[in-house]
Design a binder for these strands. Sequence first.
DNA 1: CGAAGGGCATGACAAGTGTCATGGGGAAGC
DNA 2: GCTTCCCCATGACACTTGTCATGCCCTTCG
Lengths: 201, 201
Amino acid sequence: MIRVLLADDQALVRGALAAMLNLEADLSVVAEVSQASEILGTARAVHPDVALIDVQMPGVDGLTAAAELHRLLPAIRIVICTTFGRPGYLARAMAAGASAFVVKDAPPAYLVDTIRRVHSGLRVVDPGLAAESLASGASTLTPRERDVLSAAATGATVGDIARQLHLSAGTVRNHLSAAIGKTGARTSAEAARIADSNGWL
Amino acid sequence: MIRVLLADDQALVRGALAAMLNLEADLSVVAEVSQASEILGTARAVHPDVALIDVQMPGVDGLTAAAELHRLLPAIRIVICTTFGRPGYLARAMAAGASAFVVKDAPPAYLVDTIRRVHSGLRVVDPGLAAESLASGASTLTPRERDVLSAAATGATVGDIARQLHLSAGTVRNHLSAAIGKTGARTSAEAARIADSNGWL
DNA sequence: CGAAGGGCATGACAAGTGTCATGGGGAAGC
DNA sequence: GCTTCCCCATGACACTTGTCATGCCCTTCG
């Protein structure tokens, strides 16, 4: 019996996934959490074989939590599950020690199959997404460029960002200009959109 | 036995929801579709009692499809289901003839309960979301303002938008300026973000 | 009909943004 | 120790954006 821990912030999706997985004779959902911060403690308590973790969660994101889980409890296999098949997410998931990466577009049988494979020690990655990930390449954004882009993505002006990050307006413009160049965008708003859609923020 | 039609673009979520609903003795998922454009034809073929429709779908969105379904097959009760509890979505869903509006944060039992209530002729709306919807009020954006904001949301510049909509740059600036005023934003990027988060686009 | 309001447009001004050149300080690597 | 790269900053310039006044055409509505 493969013991599964479910982490997803949307109760409806989480419950539905649990129902589906429990239909499989060799799978058992032994815990459900709605926040990334609860993953570690729950994992210590219930000793799951596999943790199915969503990327998008309030507070700490799933990838960060996955990295911590893998560092402290390496015996637990991690399957990262996400709505958005962003290349950057895949790269970060694998770097975090995940054994598999599943997009929510995939057929249900694929997820079940993935959990079984992962439990037997294999790594599972969607080939199409892997290709896209390699094609788009890793982000060349510097940490500071990420900071200003993240702020810009919320619609903040140069002045707002400068105040938020305690920088001069000129510096913010420089970082934004660099980010615009690297993303191939023509405005900071477009650069933020591109970086976000690649999972770089 | 309540016959349910499921419409959600994410195969994993769709399959999981189907598994969960089929566990209920009085519910039966009789059809699953992944695109809004397939809803009407499938509904005609299988005669469901209730249609559970996600807002976010590629191509035609769920709300538009729901309106059409309700117009042509008014006997079918419609439950709108969405990840984002945006006030505008609720308003548009009710205007489209939906009988219920469920956020994916809700507990699984709530969805099952909602389907039963809807089938018996009741309308079900999350009280918190209804309050928020009334508080934020309806969009006062004109159709043209929505157009330019939608384009701006993708990171397009004033010039880009002008070419896309076959307008002069000055006109685009006027519409954007009006939208900025109505949303209380300070830049077009922020206005687009606000309008989107309210479900006005 | 006449008024009101949305869509479209122009022109002009102030403010914000993108780019570039330039320079200082600090950390990492050969 | 020197180079390289990132971070931070300044200043200047061209360009884009946001605002406002003004006007015309059209549809809707009392």
